[in-house]
Lab assay of single mutants.
Amino acid sequence: WIARINAAVRAYGLNYSTFINGLKKAGIELDRKILADMAVRDPQAFEQVVNKVKEALQV
């Protein structure tokens, strides 16, 4: 799951650890299995999560 998430978030200019930190700051409580599945099956929803994380990180 970690490898999938890392590959997906790198397309948005983040790395895995920064993304996970941003999830916590944004108050998003999705587990890694769901995030990895979302990255593959629903990229639009995953992009929305990434955008919320970037807002929380102020990137």
Score class of each variant (00 low, 15 high):
17 S>Q: 10
29 E>K: 14
37 D>G: 09
10 R>S: 14
47 E>A: 09
41 R>I: 14
57 L>G: 05
15 N>W: 05
30 L>I: 13
27 G>W: 06
4 R>Q: 14
12 Y>A: 02
10 R>N: 11
6 N>P: 00
27 G>E: 04
8 A>G: 02
47 E>V: 11
53 V>A: 13
20 I>L: 06
5 I>N: 00
2 I>G: 01
15 N>M: 06
40 V>G: 13
21 N>W: 11
59 V>C: 13
46 F>C: 03
46 F>I: 02
12 Y>P: 00
21 N>A: 14
32 R>V: 15
9 V>C: 08
17 S>G: 07
49 V>K: 02
2 I>L: 05
17 S>C: 15
54 K>F: 10
33 K>H: 06
35 L>E: 01
11 A>F: 05
56 A>I: 12
13 G>E: 04
6 N>L: 02
58 Q>M: 06
16 Y>K: 01
29 E>H: 13
31 D>E: 09
2 I>W: 15
17 S>K: 14
9 V>S: 02
12 Y>F: 07
18 T>H: 09
54 K>Q: 14
8 A>Q: 04
18 T>P: 02
20 I>D: 08
32 R>P: 15
45 A>Q: 09
49 V>W: 03
46 F>L: 03
26 A>W: 03
14 L>N: 00
32 R>C: 15
39 A>Q: 03
45 A>Y: 12
46 F>K: 00
39 A>Y: 04
35 L>Q: 02
22 G>D: 01
41 R>N: 11
24 K>A: 10
40 V>C: 15
31 D>C: 13
32 R>F: 14
41 R>W: 07
2 I>M: 03
45 A>I: 12
37 D>S: 06
33 K>W: 09
31 D>H: 15
55 E>N: 09
4 R>S: 09
16 Y>G: 10
55 E>G: 12
37 D>R: 09
50 V>A: 04
55 E>A: 09
27 G>A: 09
52 K>C: 12
13 G>S: 04
7 A>P: 01
27 G>T: 06
4 R>A: 14
2 I>Y: 13
52 K>S: 06
25 K>S: 10
56 A>V: 08
32 R>L: 15
38 M>W: 06
57 L>S: 06
21 N>C: 14
59 V>N: 09
8 A>N: 02
56 A>C: 09
43 P>S: 06
12 Y>R: 05
4 R>T: 15
44 Q>M: 14
9 V>G: 01
45 A>S: 12
19 F>G: 00
35 L>S: 02
17 S>W: 15
22 G>W: 03
56 A>L: 08
51 N>A: 08
31 D>I: 14
28 I>Y: 10
59 V>W: 06
48 Q>F: 12
22 G>Y: 03
3 A>T: 06
20 I>W: 07
35 L>A: 05
55 E>Q: 12
27 G>R: 06
52 K>E: 13
23 L>N: 00
36 A>R: 02
33 K>P: 10
41 R>Y: 10
1 W>K: 15
57 L>D: 04
15 N>I: 08
58 Q>P: 07
34 I>M: 11
40 V>T: 14
58 Q>E: 12
20 I>E: 09
9 V>D: 00
36 A>E: 01
51 N>Y: 14
15 N>P: 04
24 K>E: 08
30 L>N: 08
10 R>Q: 13
47 E>C: 08
24 K>Q: 07
43 P>H: 08
27 G>N: 12
56 A>R: 08
27 G>P: 02
48 Q>H: 15
26 A>F: 03
6 N>D: 15
14 L>E: 02
41 R>K: 10
43 P>L: 09
46 F>P: 00
38 M>G: 02
21 N>I: 12
14 L>W: 04
24 K>M: 07
58 Q>N: 09
14 L>I: 07
32 R>Y: 13
20 I>T: 09
16 Y>T: 03
18 T>L: 07
22 G>T: 03
22 G>I: 02
41 R>G: 11
50 V>G: 01
4 R>G: 02
17 S>M: 11
11 A>D: 12
3 A>K: 15
59 V>H: 10
38 M>V: 05
3 A>G: 05
3 A>R: 09
41 R>V: 12
52 K>H: 07
27 G>Q: 10
23 L>D: 00
27 G>I: 06
45 A>W: 12
6 N>Y: 01
